[in-house]
């Protein structure tokens, strides 16, 4: 507006643009380089498999979150959904269900939670933030109710395989994570549905007038998110061979962070699966590297928060430029 604020805001906009164009790649590379220099153990294959394994739960949830955020939505209920779907499966298996049924139960419960979210948002008109905030609370409450607040242990090997199995020395969760990203990348970038997801987030009214089924697209996005929470829940439980009623608490924060660090805009219409994968890995590398350097976990959390802040700031800045 005034002559004084002009140069400052354009410098900030440039910062926003740089992040958007490849910030996550730069951040990821620089971080990895720094850790590689500081810690000899960082660049070993074992350590990288470890990073990927640690990232798998968040990464799979972040895939669903990417679909949701590209439609300009948000899903705060993912942590509860992961816990609930895993816990219901655990209860079913305790009652004698085989592992395969347990897997189906977990995926179905996740999908149903997503359906509920999608229904409240598209049919009842509740804003995504509020709708999924309510589901977050209800989901956690249900998890505690069905488990009676107890941890359930020991599941069939066929169930735990997704969490603790290995193929040629590579943990199964890592393979699941990478496969899920490849499929999701294809769906978001190449299919009619994926184009619709971008259109709904880019300009909802224009999408509707152009003949896109905006409601159906949005509903499906939350269902996909829910099913992926179920998958994530299976992996989480399998790795521990236990279902905790408090597991995955606060997971939504890291999942949203991965998507936003990956360059997606909370205002919708922008974001890629590749970016989200790098975003999730950046969070994983940060935790791993700081751990190798014996940095206190308190500071780790602070530094993660700071990285998220920079990512969200650049999103707002580039949005401001647009207006």
């Amino acid at each position: 507006m005034t002559a004084i604020s002009q140069p400052k805001s354009s410098a900030m906009n440039t910062l926003g643009n740089i992040w958007r164009k490849g910030g996550v790649l730069i951040a990821f590379t620089v971080l990895s380089g720094v850790f590689a220099v500081l810690s000899p153990r960082f660049l070993t294959i074992d350590n990288w498999l470890n990073v990927l394994l640690q990232t798998s739960t968040i990464g799979i949830v972040a895939i669903g979150m990417t679909f949701v955020i590209v439609t300009a939505g948000i899903d705060l209920s993912v942590g509860s959904t992961v816990a609930l779907s895993g816990m219901v499966a655990a209860v079913a298996m305790r009652a004698g269900s085989p592992g395969l049924i347990g897997i189906l139960v977990a995926l179905t419960v996740g999908g149903l939670v997503g359906l509920f979210n999608g229904f409240s948002i598209t049919k009842l008109g509740v804003t995504p933030f509020i709708a999924t905030l309510a589901t977050l609370a209800m989901g956690r409450g249900l998890t505690l109710a069905v488990s009676n607040g107890q941890t359930i242990f020991s599941f069939p090997d066929s169930y735990n395989y997704l969490g603790e199995g290995e193929i040629a020395g590579i943990p199964v969760p890592v393979i699941v994570l990478l496969l899920a990203f490849i499929v999701a990348h294809f769906v978001l970038s190449r299919t009619v549905f994926g184009h619709g997801v971008y259109a709904v987030g880019g300009n909802r009214e224009a999408a509707r007038l152009a003949g896109i089924h905006t409601g159906r697209t949005e509903l499906l996005v939350y269902v996909i998110g829910g099913v992926l929470c179920g998958l994530s829940g299976i992996i989480l439980m399998g790795r521990l061979d236990a279902a905790l009623p408090t597991s995955a608490t606060g997971l939504e924060l890291n999942a949203i962070a991965a998507v936003v660090i990956g360059g997606a805009s909370l205002f919708g219409g922008k974001g890629t699966m590749f970016g989200t994968l790098l975003g999730a890995l950046t969070i994983g590398v940060l935790a791993n590297g700081l751990n190798l350097l014996n940095v206190s976990p308190f500071w780790t959390q602070f530094i993660q928060g700071a990285v998220i802040f920079v990512a969200v700031l650049s999103d707002s800045l580039s949005q401001r430029k647009k207006n």
């Binding site: 190449r190 299919t191 009619v192 549905f193 994926g194 184009h195 619709g196 971008y198 259109a199 880019g202 300009n203 009214e205 224009a206 999408a207 007038l209 152009a210 003949g211 896109i212 219409g269 922008k270 647009k322």
Partner: peptide, 29 residues
């Protein structure tokens, strides 16, 4: 701007949006 176009998207994506089902096979564009 408000009801017609997706300003951030490419020309290609804007033009194809209403006929994606015609341009696709098994949902793949």
């Amino acid at each position: 701007k408000e009801q017609g176009l997706f300003l951030e998207f490419s020309i290609r994506r804007n033009i194809a949006l209403s006929i994606l089902s015609k341009l696709s096979k098994f949902g793949v564009v």
